[in-house]
Amino acid sequence: MRHAKKPSTRRPATHRTSRAPARRVRLLGLVALAAVTALTLLMVYENGGTASSATGTGTGTGTGTGTDAHRRDATPRPQSSPSAPQSPPESTPPPSASATSSSTRGTNTFSTATASGKAVGKGTVRRYKVQVEHGTGLSVNGAAKEIDGILADPRGWTADGRNGFQLVSSGPYDFEVKIATPDTVDRICGAAGLHTRGEVNCDVGDQVIVNLKRWNTGSPQFSGPLHEYRALIINHEVGHRIGHGHETCPGPGRLAPAMMQQIDGLRGCRANAWPYDRHGTYLGGPSVA
């Protein structure tokens, strides 16, 4: 009698290679992930700590400290961020026909005006020369006559009854007014520790250094004629020479003092180039410490 075979207790054979492709896929995926991670870290390192594309940071225009620069303002201001909101500037007055140069670099040599004038004012009379840097395109005698007219104006410093001025071409003098290109202004003022950054003027030693850029283009904060802004430059710097410090706006709607750094903003005042009005009243404001 033939006995029926007992059912086998052995498990059917399985193909061990069936899982191998899946393992290889996972392994390749891990390798790829590791490669991407390494590449990302390399990009982070090369971009200075950020994986995003570099966007260059803007540098400040360096409008300086106002109409001029002084030793207490020697430390440059932090550079502005390109994303910082900017208030729209007022329109800059166009340069006059006699002021067409936009040079930033001159020769570091100067011509002295041969023009001279009569003494104006009372009290201490300060003699001054006018010089213009070669390469600016300005007439040195033309500039001297304009400055002479500013200092002789009845709204100027002679209205105080204690100060006078005289344009001279030779002999002893008390100070010089030099009109120079921005690079030369930076060099002269920087030697005294003043940071004009190619934008503003300075008063150093026996020199009033006028930035050609300001002389030719005025200021975005000053809406008057270019000649008036030139008067502000001269009155402000000469004001320092005769002992005046900085002042600020005396109140909304009033005329800004000539000793206010108006290029920094008018703070509610109206632009003004003169220390006195036509009636001899001083147009001052609170002192700035």
Rank of each mutant, 00 (worst) to 15 (best):
R11F: 10
T14I: 14
H15M: 12
H15I: 15
P21V: 06
R24V: 14
L33D: 14
T40W: 11
L41S: 12
M43T: 14
E46M: 15
G48S: 09
G49F: 10
T63Q: 02
G66Q: 00
T75K: 11
P89A: 09
E90I: 11
P95D: 00
S96R: 06
A97G: 04
S102L: 04
F110T: 10
T114W: 06
T114D: 07
V120P: 00
K122N: 15
G123K: 03
G123N: 02
Y128G: 08
L138M: 00
G142F: 02
A144F: 01
I147T: 04
I150M: 04
L151Y: 06
P154R: 06
R162F: 12
Q166M: 08
V168I: 13
D174S: 07
E176V: 12
D186S: 11
G190A: 01
A191Q: 12
A191M: 06
L194Y: 06
T196I: 09
R197E: 04
C202T: 01
C202N: 01
V204P: 12
K213A: 15
N216D: 08
G218A: 04
Q221T: 15
S223F: 01
V238L: 04
H244S: 11
H244D: 13
C249P: 01
C249I: 05
P250H: 09
M260W: 00
M260A: 03
Q261W: 05
D264V: 13
L266I: 08
N272W: 12
N272R: 07
A273M: 01
W274D: 06
T281N: 15
G284L: 09
